[in-house]
Write a protein that binds this DNA or RNA. Structure first.
Length: 112
DNA sequence: CTCGTGACGGTAT
DNA sequence: TATACCGCCACGA
């Protein structure tokens, strides 16, 4: 069983269904990571051929966290739009697309 | 072992 | 309401 922080993060991200998004903080919480920064760090180190849907992870502002104009930013936006995610004129994603409404009041024991 | 870094978040102002 | 600051700690050098 993998139990490294990165493995848990990747697996949690893998749980995000198509058409939904989650924030770094939410992933960190569910993945038992020490904090959102580790999630960003883990995704940054994600290998290219990975099946982890990294593009479904956004920041707490509801926006793509990557620098606007960067190639990765556009890739992420394209991938999300392909899954039916709509962006407001400011580039924000509606909360209705969040997999979890807000911060998780009820933690869920890590299993599977 | 130490040090710097970072796809962030929450709180204070 | 927006902006600034600090805390968090896994990882690589």
């Amino acid at each position: 069983m993998s139990s490294s922080t990165y493995e848990r993060i990747f697996q949690t991200v893998q749980n995000i269904p198509s058409g939904k998004v989650a924030t770094y903080g939410q992933i960190a919480y569910r993945a038992r990571a020490s904090g959102p920064r580790q999630v960003g760090y883990a995704l940054h180190h994600l290998p290219q051929g990975s099946s982890v849907p990294w593009h479904r992870v956004i920041n707490s502002k509801g926006e793509i966290s990557l620098p606007a104009g960067s190639e990765l930013h556009e890739i992420q936006k394209t991938l999300l739009e392909a899954e039916g995610i709509e962006f407001s004129p400011e580039g924000k994603i509606s909360r209705s697309k969040y997999l979890w409404e807000h911060k998780l009041p009820k933690p869920r024991p890590y299993s599977e």
